[in-house]
Nucleic acid binder design. Structure first.
Lengths: 325, 325
DNA sequence: TTTGTGTGATTAAACGTTCAATCAAAGGAA
DNA sequence: TTCCTTTGATTGAACGTTTAATCACACAAA
């Protein structure tokens, strides 16, 4: 490994001058800067991040903690974050909360011990990660008071709900995976708010809810709104087994716009979140915090986007629909 | 931040002794070790990884480069790797090849510049990542001469093929996503080898292949084997549109056992890879290389596992089946 | 007594970088 | 000339850790 000293010796100058020339900080003559830079290139100089980290007290590394790395959104978050990060010369170290609050806390500690300059945390559902000694941005949902930036899950819920309302549905079922999740609660709250009292909506949760669905439909529900695409796929399976077709007998919506949403038949109406924008904002906030320019939770929210596809249509005319129009 | 010096001062001893006591290296009296350790705990001492990295020339960080972080397998790889890594006190820095060979090379460079001690690379399909100045383990597939460890994709192909053969199918279609992918080619090669000449198998690729599928079935094919679960879902959509049912009219198989495989209806027969074992072996190999104990590509292969589910069954009796039994 | 052998601790340098403080030289103004 | 300012470079310390070399001392053997 070639160091600053070697360049200094090769050019016949002091290490400090080399450092100054390379970082553009002190006072160095233009011609000397040239000589040093080209010599650095010739020798294939790569600054030692370790040396720099020690001196500056910053590693240039950010920690990313997710509730569960098998989260279907993780790939997209990781990708955008990774791209945005290395355009700023930062690295992303991963940490997995493995589904529990204690593991989450340990993951945070490990990253802090590694000397990360900042943390990006998607909290374990239902938990509020303990405060760490480094700048931390929390990506969760609007209703979390600690939330720094997130998709507008409530708004997303309103979007699908409005879509379903516009199509003429007046009685629907809403299916969530786990009521502990603030994100899912916000999505459902958005739906409910939009439905207000023009649409009758029954909220169901988890496996029990999944089983209860067919009953709801027999009872007159003409659409099922879920809080995730995978859940929607499960619902579709359930419906198929009960000889109910989508969207013929019942309309169906998901959330997140995973790859499977367009692979399904019918393609799934869902709500997409702008992961790119969210992660970029998160990164901006955390770098700003690191620079010491920022304060507490800003709580911004990025709009979601409805992706209307084949799985939603007008409701089949039944006895329950007489009041429509 | 509390450093070794502060502990030294607090205990009234030299920094070197503290270092020795904490790492158990030099000669320190047992009682002194006790005093130092408890003082370290009291003060909340955390060793500076930067300082250590500078002195030892090792960062304790590994780089993980994937062809595309949105790869559906990435979450599982990242998770198991992350867990296995931090049980050894290592960190995982992520890099994204973003679908191109050049980006892959840049990602590798960035990680090397960051001072990673080793690299774990899932190569961009069809490429062979350039040699890096740090120990690198390549996770690809058996037919790649540079492969260090991977799932036995060929064996997986043989597994499904045998399953389909055992069920009595004698004419099938195989659908791959992209012939450039060595993994997919190996999977298909395994299928073909197993089918040998007892089952007639037509190999199709990509979107064109997807469209040609129905024709193949009209032509007597009773099963469709794909190289990925998502592809299988697409096939099912296509079949549904053509009023063909799974597995009634045609059996269907996937690959990888993604979450969607059990959410579908019917649940998808697929082949699971033991990501945990693969990543653990990869980690073991790379740490061994770093310790200087290992040589060139070992090329091990981890067996895959068939997951028989509802999407496969005996073929429907048709004119083409008269030779069966 | 001298010589030798452990034992437990210290010293000092090194890893590569940065940065404040310092210095030498040159040029301009008085 | 002397004094001041500017420019371009150097010195030296510091970040926190590790480690080889050294040292002081006690105790046993000669």
């Amino acid at each position: 490994m070639v160091s600053i000293k070697q360049i200094a010796k090769a050019v016949g100058v002091s290490p400090a001058t080399v450092s100054n020339a390379l970082t553009g900080k002190g006072r160095v003559s233009p011609m000397m800067v040239d000589r040093i830079q080209s010599m650095a290139k010739d020798l294939g100089y790569r600054p030692s991040l370790a040396g720099r980290a020690l001196q500056r007290g910053q590693t240039g590394i950010l920690g990313l903690v997710m509730p569960d790395l098998t989260n279907p959104l993780f790939p997209r978050i990781a990708q955008h974050l990774s791209i945005a990060a290395d355009s700023r010369g930062l690295g992303i170290l991963i940490g997995d909360s493995r589904g529990s609050a204690e593991e989450q806390s340990q993951a945070l500690h490990r990253l802090v011990d590694r000397g990360v300059d900042g943390l990006l945390v998607v909290p374990q559902k239902g938990t509020s990660p303990e405060l760490q000694p480094v700048p931390t941005v929390i990506i969760n949902t609007a209703s979390d008071p600690r939330n720094d930036v997130s998709a507008d899950h409530g708004g997303g819920g309103r979007l699908v709900a409005r879509h379903i309302t516009d199509l003429g549905h007046r009685k629907v079922a809403i299916l969530g995976g786990d009521p502990v999740s603030e994100v899912q609660r916000d999505r459902i709250a958005g739906m409910s708010a939009e439905f207000n009292n023009v649409v009758e909506a029954r909220v169901l949760w988890g496996e029990a809810g999944l089983s209860a669905l067919v009953g709801e439909i027999m009872n007159g529900a003409t659409a099922v709104l879920t809080t995730s695409d995978l859940l929607a796929l499960k619902v579709q399976s359930q419906l198929t087994r009960s000889k109910l077709s989508v969207p013929g007998d019942v309309s169906l919506t998901g959330f997140d716009d995973l790859p499977l949403a367009t692979a399904m038949h019918p393609t799934l109406t869902t709500v997409a979140q702008d992961v790119k924008q969210t992660t970029e904002r998160a990164l901006e906030i955390v770098t700003r915090m690191i620079a010491g320019e920022a304060g507490p939770a800003s709580g911004e929210t990025i709009p979601m986007r409805l992706e209307p596809r084949q799985s939603t249509s007008n409701p089949k005319q039944t006895a329950n629909q007489e009041e429509t129009l």
